[in-house]
Design a protein around this nucleic acid. Structure first.
Lengths: 199, 199
DNA sequence: ACCTGAACACCGTTCAAGT
DNA sequence: ACCTGAACACCGTTCAAGT
């Protein structure tokens, strides 16, 4: 039984766990291939056997965080579904404040997560009675608002993190907007849109 | 007249201009103190005479970009004021896509820019007839939505940048929400807010 | 006053080598 | 199959020295 004693072998999940802990506890800059080898008790270059380079390692971190996202089910009212979705997404991101910038800027990882996480949101918004064109805008609004909110919270010093009442007030406003739009567009034609500037 | 010939002396603005050009043309990672010295035709360490360290240099870049923000004036309708503000802010940020992450995560610089740029937005939202408590939420919604939108656009490959119609559709929705909320809150008491989750 | 150049303590990554 | 260790080409920053 070789390897029965001594440390267990490196695996991708052990690497990702250690890297995430490093980022959470000491910041993104503290994640160094060499330091990572150190906390894993291994030669710094051993990680390269399991991971192509640092960028793909960061991709794995983002995947791991997004994997924890599962929007709550069993809610009837579409308004509460939208709110619950937004809260779950916010909490997911704020669980790793030092990683949020990576989280929202890694195109591929965000797209993959969206494929899993977005449909419930879109379904909830769709149940409001909005016409399809507005469903897209409303979903985008929720997603982008959460991104913006989380970005602000994550870059604030931990002591100054908000209590979430502002977040709830904005959700109220978004829901009100969807309701109002759903009503007006079922009775009157879509209102004219202001023309865009050149660029 | 010493220095009449030879290159002109380094200044902070020359340094910031060169650094911004480097970031715009070659990405954030290309901004290196050594490379910056190179494009300025100077010893890499000369920059340190004018700037404490790289972090404060980045702060100067953020300041320089935000300095270009002046929301359009002379608009009557609050709805168009809100839209114009959001477009101006978006365009400002997307003019330097490689810097947006820094742009929105440098607390102090954002706060300073906000002090100049925010009041017109808050005034516009205030003119909608919303009660003060909702004015804050509505302003936050616009700011955070633009942040989220820009973050998504900036991390998309240039070819895939949107045409802005999605942005306009969301602005419509936000304005609709503000209008609806202004109407209902002038006639009925504020609707009950869903209670918050533990964390 | 303003810039230079050597030096220090780091990086990410490669590659041949060990077991 | 999995890990090591030397090596390479970079980093940011300090500090004494030049003009």
């Amino acid at each position: 039984m070789p390897r029965a004693k001594g440390r267990e072998p490196l695996t991708l999940v052990r690497i990702v766990d250690a890297a995430l802990a490093l980022v959470d506890e000491r910041g993104l800059d503290a994640l160094t291939m060499r330091r990572l080898g150190g906390v894993l008790g291994v030669d710094p270059m051993a990680v390269y056997y399991h991971v192509a380079d640092k960028r793909t390692l960061l991709g794995h971190l983002v995947d791991a965080v997004f994997a924890d996202l599962d929007p709550p089910a069993g809610i009837e009212d579409w308004r509460e579904q939208v709110r619950a979705w937004a809260r779950a997404y916010r909490d997911l991101a704020l669980a790793h404040p030092n990683l949020v910038l990576q989280l929202f800027s890694y195109r591929e990882a965000v797209a993959a997560a969206a494929a899993r996480a977005d449909p419930p949101l879109r379904a909830a918004v769709g149940a409001s009675g909005l016409p399809p064109a507005d469903v897209e805008a409303a979903g985008d609004l929720v997603v982008d608002y959460v991104h913006g909110y989380v970005l602000g919270e994550a870059s604030a010093p931990p002591a100054a993190r908000g209590d979430g009442t502002g977040f709830e007030a904005v959700l109220d406003l978004i829901v009100t907007g969807i309701e109002a739009r759903a009503l007006t567009s079922s009775t009157t034609p879509r209102r004219r849109r202001a023309k865009q500037p050149a660029r």
